[in-house]
Nucleic acid binder design. Structure first.
Lengths: 346, 346
DNA sequence: TTGTAGGCGTTATCAT
DNA sequence: ATGATAACGCCTACAA
């Protein structure tokens, strides 16, 4: 009765050789029914299948990967999970990827370079077949080149040299929303956001700038705030705006995660949307349905984008990637709802 | 210049044998410096290290796992990602797991049995070393037994035969909050939630029942609503409560994800928290900071729980699991903030 | 300190 | 239709 409190050694799995011996055939035959490559006689096939079930035999993807040189595995590099945008993206990626028999390594980087490197190295070791990077900017191009030698890469939103990219018309989307506000008579339009350094997000700010410029509306520096990508930060930034001597008549949120905070702050100040202040954003998340009045926003097709990213990646894995950088840009659509109001005619 | 638009065949990696040949030593020597097991002479070690760097050699975890019988991989089985509670849990698990050199397979099941089976089988094939199940109830005990034969398992919140479990005092936590409401003079206390069938969540309802019973307050069936685990559902359920001929004076939300919807619905009805209606919940999420007035809640130590789950799992993987079912129960703590009000003295 | 040889669980290429 | 046998990339005694 030694070792009664440890079952580590019981981890002995049945192998293809066991099944072969049991069936009185060679491993190759078993392998054949496993991958139904060549034809195997009905009777032996049936016998083998029965044994496989009986002994709960599960082929080792490790061993198989060693010879086929594929792990059917994809790494998902992502700064964090707290933005619902990420969640929608991940869920759509997961759905597609699993439908193709691939598995996902979850790599949360906290946007820390150190953690990014750790995980990339980990993927290299595990012979991951593909890498999808969400909102992560890798500046180290040598690293990218090294990674590209051993797996396919696709980036969502971040622009990286030689890396296929899925993105959305960030600039135009924001431009359209701001334009809408301006048409409604707004001039005091604030812009709150974060990580202006990330190419996709930067473009959103550019859209704001362009719309303002084209209408010769000077941008007041106190109306542009860069915080963090959390609802809390949206809340704080909005507070700062509302405390201003002359607060804006409209606030545009770089994304809807911030907008939740904006709504709550405005509520707390006893102001009404859109009567007292207009609010717009970017994303069109399912979870934003909760906001009342319903948010006017630049809608991006998040789930389609996630699926496109996964699709492109897997196709590249299976068929080999093109030498030229692929880029798929989705269009935003301005969705007018009830969170904005004309200034001139109340 | 053939094959210019495919680089599939360039996937040839350098192996330990390459390095050995280059260094003029045997593979075992290279292996030794890789795992620095036995001592290797300074000079050859240095030479090998140099070559490894020069050729970007990365050992294959697949091949290594084949012989060491460990993939250093853990599966994360989870219904979805839209509850911020999951997000906090996952982030803490990821942190611990990665600090131990393990990687995480993300398995989103949508609470569908079919998807659960798919992923469990996938883990079996990949020789995953451990499985952490978040809020998922597997009834098929034969399946569990089969899985336990090849990996360690830990469950968070769900009670499964023979599976180690991390949980929290769900019943007491809810009981305490409801008690607090009753002490404040409330009798018309509503309870909104979802998935009452999941053991942990069921316990929360039991806590509500017990508190009411002990104070001889009959539970009005229209005050108990089972919906879904989304903010939207919280919003809808709250609406239903507010439309009642005699709406409750307090609403307890099974978790804080629902509470966001509750807050918004109440706001929309022009009611004030806590003046017109009291609101309580369960969780104490960081993201709930956003709710104003700040939410009175039964706090659970989510991140500690995630870490405990990962810790227990990895310890079991490394040292072998105990034969007896382990169970770690964390305590809730009632946190009084500003979302409740005494009925008697306004 | 270092090398040799066998094995990990599969697939793949030949034969038969 | 089936069987040997050689990889795949690495680790680990056992020898030297």
């Amino acid at each position: 009765m030694e070792d009664k409190n440890s079952n580590k050694q019981t981890r002995q799995q049945t192998t293809i050789a066991d099944i072969a011996k049991l069936a009185g055939v060679s491993v190759s035959t078993v392998s054949r029914v496993l991958n139904n490559s060549t034809e195997v006689s009905k009777t032996t096939k049936k016998k083998i299948l029965k044994l496989i079930k009986e002994y709960d035999y599960t082929p080792s993807e490790l061993a198989r990967g060693l010879v086929t040189k594929t792990s059917k595995t994809i790494g998902l590099l992502i700064p964090n999970l707290l933005n619902p945008y990420y969640v929608e993206l991940i869920e759509s990626i997961e759905k597609f990827v699993s439908s193709q028999g691939f598995s996902l390594f979850l790599c949360i980087t906290d946007a820390k370079e150190e953690k990014e490197k750790y995980y990339i190295n980990e993927m290299l070791r595990r012979r991951t077949n593909g890498l999808v990077m969400l909102s992560t900017n890798i500046k180290d191009h040598d690293l990218i080149k090294k990674v590209k030698k051993s797996m396919e890469i696709v980036s969502v939103e971040a622009d990286i040299e030689d890396v296929d990219k899925i993105s959305v018309t960030n600039e135009k989307g924001t431009y359209d929303v701001i334009n809408h506000l301006i048409e409604y008579g707004h001039k005091d339009i604030a812009f709150i956001g974060y990580r202006f350094s990330l190419s996709g997000l930067q473009q959103r700010f550019t859209g704001y700038q362009r719309a303002m410029e084209e209408h010769s509306i000077p941008i007041r520096p106190e109306y542009v705030i860069e915080g963090e990508g959390t609802g809390n930060s949206g809340y704080t930034m909005t507070q700062r705006l509302l405390e201003l001597p002359n607060p804006p008549t409209a606030i545009h949120c770089m994304n809807e995660h911030l907008a939740v905070g904006t709504y709550l702050a405005i509520n707390e100040y006893g102001l009404r949307i859109p009567q007292d202040i207009s609010v717009t954003a970017f994303d069109n998340l399912a979870s934003s349905n909760i906001l009342k009045p319903r948010l006017t926003t630049a809608a991006m097709p998040i789930r389609e984008m996630g699926e496109a990213a996964a699709d492109l990646l897997i196709r590249n894995i299976l068929e080999g990637s093109k030498q030229v950088k692929q880029e798929i840009i989705f269009s935003t659509k301005l969705i007018l709802r009830e969170s904005t109001r004309r200034l001139d005619c109340p």
